[in-house]
């Protein structure tokens, strides 16, 4: 048995990157409490289309918490108030009838608004392009047991690889720093044997690219709280350690 909610939404509407934006209030009526947050927006949009109002553009794709496309600020918290939950996994039963919900796009100087709740997250792609890969001959895959990896290392790499690249860490950070995302992507490769050959060049170039777009970390810890995949702050410490090692090692390499 699902009950229905009546909510008031305050949604950031902005027609284009350079257009002025503002919060617009909408009534969301008869929302089934077993719908997801994105489904709630779908229902509101259907109502808007019926009334010849331009629907709210919001980011979404897989709707099952694995692609990292969704992500908005809900009442001042990235992905809403639930821990370890992406916006698409947030259910309306977590809200009460009569609630007012403010919805704002991710904010960072490097994340310009494209339209309404959608921002341009290309800077994160740039960081990946700078070193988020390994160079290996492709073709037939190796034998699964060729490279032995201790269980703990595999687990740790997997924890880092859980990052879906949604950008909540950057959105939640008062400095708009990209440390949690970058460090997760780094540790995912840097902790595994396959990532070792390029470990230090990767670390240096991904961090340097990150710093071209984002702010400087002051260790608030907001990012890890906002993360829908509970990426740990520990990865940031690993990255900081690796970066200094990279500076030293890459220097001795360049003098060879």
């Amino acid at each position: 048995m699902s009950t229905e909610l009546n909510l008031t939404l305050q949604v950031w509407r902005q027609a284009a990157p350079d257009a002025p934006g503002s919060f617009v209030t909408y009534e969301a009526k008869n929302i089934p409490d077993d719908s997801s947050f994105l489904e709630m927006l779908d229902i509101v949009n259907e109502g808007l289309i019926d009334n010849d109002v331009e629907p709210i553009e919001f980011p979404h794709d897989c709707r099952e918490g694995i692609c990292g496309t969704c992500g908005v600020m809900i009442n001042g918290r990235a992905h809403g108030q639930e821990r370890a939950t992406a916006t698409c996994q947030l259910h309306m039963r977590k809200f009460s009838d009569g609630d007012t919900i403010a919805i704002e796009p991710w904010r960072a100087a490097a994340f310009p608004v494209i339209k309404d709740l959608i921002v341009d997250r290309s800077p994160m792609d740039k960081i990946i392009q700078a070193g988020g890969y390994i160079t290996a001959p492709t073709g037939t895959g190796g034998d699964a047991n060729d490279t032995l990896i201790p269980k703990e290392v595999a687990e740790s790499a997997m924890d880092a690889a859980a990052c879906i690249g949604c950008g909540a860490c950057i959105a939640a950070c008062p400095n708009s720093a990209g440390q949690l995302f970058t460090s997760a992507k780094l540790w995912h490769l840097n902790s595994l044997p396959q990532g070792q050959p390029e470990r230090f060049t990767r670390t240096e170039s991904m961090v340097d690219t990150m710093e071209q777009f984002f702010g400087a970390c002051t260790n608030h810890g907001e990012c890890a709280e906002a993360c829908p995949k509970e990426i740990s702050l520990d990865f940031i410490a690993y990255m900081n350690g690796d970066y200094i090692k990279a500076k030293i090692k890459n220097r001795s390499r360049s003098s060879q």
């Binding site: 305050q10 950031w12 704002e104 100087a109 008062p174 720093a177 702010g215």
Partner: peptide, 9 residues
């Protein structure tokens, strides 16, 4: 310079 303030709370 990298931060863009939230307009809401």
């Amino acid at each position: 310079a990298s931060d863009f303030k939230y307009q809401g709370k």
